[in-house]
Simulated scan of single mutants.
Amino acid sequence: MESIAAESTTMETVNEKASRGENFVRYALERIHKDNGFAARLRRADNPSTEYQSWESLASFGVDLEKDWVRLPYCVVGAALAKAKPEADGSLKLGAAIAACYDEGSQSDQAKAKLRRLLACSTTAEACQILRPLLALISGRGVRLDFSQLLDDLLWFSGDHRERIRTRWAQGFYRRATDDEASIEAGASHD
């Protein structure tokens, strides 16, 4: 009975013009706030030992469970959403979100180390493994991450777009510092 209800909810939330990431995040947020059981199953997707408990929920959305480069991004993002329970998707891209976790932003040695480790990933599975604690940090600091974009990035990470995605993450990380510095300078010149 739950699968039938979940499927009808899935069909209602899928927007043909939206990306897979946008559709999944919208679907997951809607279900997380209405169904505690769904949220609990999705939280378990974060642990390789209990991930299988989320498969029914992921399959009802149409996730191909046999392909780890497809399944793992949904697991990592779904679990992060279920743990953070944001009211809506955020707006900060991954690089900017990492920088936003530290007072020094992209000048923080810790932030730089986390970004470098993520940029060193060569497979989707490795990126998802590195992202698990990073997403917990981002959520714990109250940073509003754009989960939709992250999921889309991860779904394309295994293909020819890996370098472009890593470049976008780095650009977002360092651009945030540039934007913050420009804001500070503009504020100082108005004094």
Rank of each mutant, 00 (worst) to 15 (best):
F147L: 00
V25Q: 04
H190I: 15
L81P: 07
K67I: 15
C101I: 09
K34V: 01
I4R: 06
A111Y: 06
T50K: 12
Y102H: 15
D103I: 05
A188C: 01
R164T: 08
N36P: 13
I138A: 00
W156M: 03
H190G: 00
R141T: 06
G62E: 11
E185P: 00
W169F: 14
Y102V: 04
V143G: 00
D180A: 14
R132A: 11
A177K: 14
Y52G: 02
N23C: 14
K34A: 14
H161R: 13
S8K: 11
M1I: 02
F157C: 02
A6D: 07
D179I: 15
A186N: 09
A99L: 06
L81G: 06
P86C: 04
G159A: 02
D180N: 11
R144H: 09
D152I: 04
L118I: 01
N47V: 13
L154Q: 03
I138D: 03
L118K: 03
A82M: 09
P133K: 07
K67P: 01
E126M: 10
I130R: 13
Y52M: 12
I184S: 05
D153L: 02
D191I: 05
L155Q: 07
Q107E: 13
V14R: 02
T13C: 02
A177D: 12
L65R: 08
V63T: 12
R117I: 10
E104N: 11
T13I: 03
A82T: 11
I98E: 06
G21R: 09
G21P: 07
K34T: 11
Q107C: 02
D109K: 12
V143L: 03
Q129M: 09
A186G: 00
S91Q: 07
V14L: 05
W55V: 04
D191W: 10
I184Q: 14
L115M: 14
A5Q: 07
G172D: 05
N36I: 11
S57F: 14
I4M: 03
S19Y: 08
E51H: 10
T50W: 10
A96V: 02
Q110A: 12
A96D: 04
G37K: 12
M11P: 00
